[in-house]
Nucleic acid binder design. Structure first.
Lengths: 109, 109
DNA sequence: CCGAATCCAAATAGATACTG
DNA sequence: CAGTATCTATTTGGATTCGG
């Protein structure tokens, strides 16, 4: 997760290195809707554990896909949002949505 | 790999269930070029092992993404190609290529 | 050549308890 | 609330051997 792999030549591998992971795509899907707090993500990304959500958010923050904003309040509040780079993943998400819907239709027919 | 998970509501999860896996995306990337033999895939999908390639191809065949054609020859020949459903993944691959290239540029600047 | 089978290593994820 | 720290379980992948 936190490893510094060498940069692959192939752009597909480059992309996979950053989001080639089930959880990350789901986190991005939910952040596409807008800023969310940690516990909101816990709920919307069904089945993820606290530890895994945290480590993925850290990795994506490091990769420049996600912003993390901490509010000095009690109780604490931390908001996550996509950076511009993160938002630029939208075409990938959109094509996955389109394909997933199409695939389900072919199953039903 | 071979498990029968229930069909998710979210189209993104549906897609991830079928190709949400580093190796599968790379195999599809290479099959987009056209029909390939087993050993060709072994070479083009850098770093994959025989076992893993085999099991992924089986899973994708079962999912209706890949055709497997066996020739009754000596030495044996097996050719893999994408089905129409597999080919329909092209927009996802394309958007991953585009994003990966864009991301690399942002790193260099 | 393609691949099944076995066994083992590594990576990833979950459960639980605790804290500023 | 939003984590961190452990410890364990599961999943995934690699190495090797063998066979049609």
């Amino acid at each position: 997760m936190e490893n510094e792999k060498k940069m692959p030549q192939c752009p597909v591998e480059m992309t996979l290195q950053l989001i080639g992971d089930k959880w990350k795509v789901l986190i991005i899907r939910d952040l596409m809707e807008g800023t969310k707090r940690f516990n909101e993500l816990m709920r919307s990304v069904t089945g993820i554990s606290q530890k895994v959500l945290t480590s993925h958010l850290r990795a994506m923050e490091k990769a420049g896909l996600v912003n993390r904003k901490v509010f000095a309040e009690v109780p604490p509040r931390v908001e996550y949002s996509l950076t511009e780079t993160g938002l630029s993943l939208k075409p990938i998400l959109d094509s996955m949505v389109a394909w997933g819907m199409h695939y389900k239709e072919t199953l039903e027919s």
